[in-house]
Design a protein around this nucleic acid. Sequence first.
DNA 1: ACTCCTTACGGAGCACGTAACTATA
DNA 2: TATAGTTACGTGCTCCGTAAGGAGT
Lengths: 307, 307
Amino acid sequence: MELRQLTSLVALEESGFNVTLAAKQLFLVQSAVSQHLAQLEQELGTQLFMRKGKRLIGLTAAGEQVLNYARQALAIRENILDVGREHVEEGSGLLRIGTTHTQACYVLPAVIRAFRKQFPQVNLQINQGTPQQLVELVVTDRVDFSICTEELGEHSTLTAIPCYRWNRSLIALKGHPVLSEKPLSLERICNYPLITYTFGFTGANHMQTTFARAGLQPNVVLTAADTDVIKTYVREGMGVGLIASMAYSPDLDPDLETRDLSHMLPWETTWVAYHKDKYLRRYQKRFIDLLEQMILDNGATKLTEES
Amino acid sequence: MELRQLTSLVALEESGFNVTLAAKQLFLVQSAVSQHLAQLEQELGTQLFMRKGKRLIGLTAAGEQVLNYARQALAIRENILDVGREHVEEGSGLLRIGTTHTQACYVLPAVIRAFRKQFPQVNLQINQGTPQQLVELVVTDRVDFSICTEELGEHSTLTAIPCYRWNRSLIALKGHPVLSEKPLSLERICNYPLITYTFGFTGANHMQTTFARAGLQPNVVLTAADTDVIKTYVREGMGVGLIASMAYSPDLDPDLETRDLSHMLPWETTWVAYHKDKYLRRYQKRFIDLLEQMILDNGATKLTEES
DNA sequence: ACTCCTTACGGAGCACGTAACTATA
DNA sequence: TATAGTTACGTGCTCCGTAAGGAGT
């Protein structure tokens, strides 16, 4: 058994059991990958693949198990290579982050600015995706870690660290009647058409249940995955926005006004998560530190101060 | 990086950083292993070994990390091979057990008898050792699992399952005055010279603290790692034996008599432990089941009935 | 007809063994 | 001097690529 055979197995699965495609991704010809797979099956003495004639269409039970172990083995290889890189190219390398739009635009910039100052030689790569995609990315080691508010805490293969807590603000065009509501309550907010995050993003579901428990039916006229879209439609006059507080900036949004809603809506925790068996290089650990540190400096509510 | 290079690394460490010896164990010549190690270092770009001239005398920090990952990688390879074996040679294979003398002689025979009936094709290999050695054996995958009373529960890389609980009996030659003591108490036992298990074996330390807490100083004239030795010296008239209850059998020991001490000495739990990332073949799982099951059938106290 | 996988075959590269050299104890 | 490790070099194996053949869509 060779690592290269396991590599082919993983690539095969990731290419939807298309040997040709897998080979391309590995910069090999089909026949090479085909041989790897045949060799594996021969050595193990078991069918690993379900076939339709010559075509591979899936894995057998044994194949699933082997694939699982193959992934682990390749992850370990990466760890070993990272140990090497850490000593050779100390302070330089690649940092691959997966995150949502909101984090990427409104939270990470400050963190990344500080990080770049400490590690100017580290190349950054930000992958944007849905929370589900972010889990997938970090589980398959296509990013070093993912940062977002949902999903991350629940996966057993991930180590998830709470970074900071946040809540929501209401935004509206200056002069909008909602801004004059006193006191501002959930009931009153429900009298206006609302624009907020799509289910599965940025704590939207969490918020929804809060309304439901209060017996309220908010009139959500539009949902979006990212804050900029919400702002855009608030500016269009389509309604009142409910966004993460850190996504409002008086400089960038001089035409909008906010009201803090943290006393009436649930607090959210943003997590950073990485694969629990992953070797973390020094700069990767530092980045996580900064994530917590920077938020603290900015005066946002840090987790440890709560509870 | 190739698995074979990692194999050489692990073999090197296990042979005390003697390349020649490592090569022999791998059925290779020195130069081959030497090259593997050189290749690894070159690919990682880092010193992995501390050297004294040409001789390797230990690992650098990086080397330690790589070794650790190498072990994991090789364990995964074994898992994959086991998946294959499970499907090819179903019901046959090798079962490597590590255990202490007492378990091997007085508990396992019945389990193994039942196991052999179900899996006559599985070869058995029993490795005897101290609890510390048993941990080492199972951590380095030189046995499939270890069975004993100490140590196993405390290692994070092991999955330890409580099998059954037991306590001690006193044994003495027929007619020995201790057998007439009524009621039999810890104090009275302390009036006789005692023979029991060596510290670190079969719950000896646990028992010792019980005496100490009662303010008693037992007169232990001899300790031994296994029960047969204890019986031998009891027969010599050297003193009174304190042994695991299951180690007495009226058939084998017609010249000895016992008194149950379970009301005055602490209960012990015997564990079976295997490496937590290990793939368990069907017959290996079955064996663990049997361990619990057989003890129940024999009327011994099963864990779940307690507490 | 096109795509996809397998098999056969050849060349380049590499892994291991032999052996000579170097260094440690 | 004996033991241990590195380096050089040759041979045989193997890995990948080319190419031809069969199987599915």
